[in-house]
Amino acid sequence: MPKKRVQVVLNEDIRKLGNNGDLVEVAPGYARNYLIPQHKAVFATPGVLKQVERRRQAEQRRLEAQRQEAIAFKDSLETIHRFRIERQVGEGEAIFGTVTNQDVAEAIQEQTGREVDRRGISLPDEINKIGFYKAHVKLHSDITAEIEIQVAPS
């Protein structure tokens, strides 16, 4: 004889079960004695399912808007193309210190007025002389802009 299951919609992420808004099948006792009293889930009714679908669509629209904004910002970064960072220079065009992700993020913010997460910036391994270097700026999960960094004497 097959075991009975009930469908519930989760109100929060539950490890090994599902994420907020997911429709899952669980044992009736688990739903009745734990999930529902703890407000971790609600029984799946047609009204609740419509509400979940509306939420999911709104989230997709929000994510698509973020993606479009990232594409527009990528275009503006690649239009500017070159960002200048000044450093003190010693013998043989060697710079004192190094150029960090934070320096690049500050240069981008200075020219565009928009903040960029420094953890999403990848620089060449060693920037220890003045010159031009390529850097990649991750703006979204699948959108990366390539910019040029000019390290110049101050």
Rank of each mutant, 00 (worst) to 15 (best):
R62S: 10
E106N: 11
V89D: 04
V104L: 01
A44T: 02
V48S: 06
V24W: 02
R54C: 03
R62F: 08
V89G: 04
S76W: 11
A70N: 07
D22Q: 09
A27W: 14
E91V: 10
E106G: 06
A65T: 11
N19W: 14
I95K: 01
N33D: 10
A70I: 01
A58E: 08
P37Q: 14
E59V: 04
V42W: 10
R56N: 06
D103Y: 00
P28C: 11
L35Q: 01
E106F: 04
I71K: 13
A27E: 13
S76M: 15
R82D: 04
G21A: 03
G29L: 11
V24S: 01
E86Y: 15
S76P: 10
T45Y: 09
V24F: 05
R87Y: 02
Q66H: 10
E64D: 08
I95M: 09
L77Q: 04
Q51N: 15
K40M: 09
L63M: 09
K50W: 15
V89L: 06
T45P: 06
G47R: 07
A65M: 14
R56Q: 10
E59F: 11
R54W: 04
K40C: 04
V52G: 06
D103M: 02
R32K: 09
Q57L: 14
Q60E: 09
I80D: 06
L23Q: 02
P37Y: 12
D103G: 03
L35R: 00
H39S: 15
R84M: 06
Q102K: 12
A105N: 05
I85N: 03
Y30T: 02
Y34L: 12
D75T: 15
F43T: 10
V42A: 08
Q88Y: 12
K40V: 03
I108C: 01
I108L: 00
G21Y: 02
F43M: 13
T98H: 09
P46I: 07
D103W: 00
A72C: 10
E64M: 13
V99R: 01
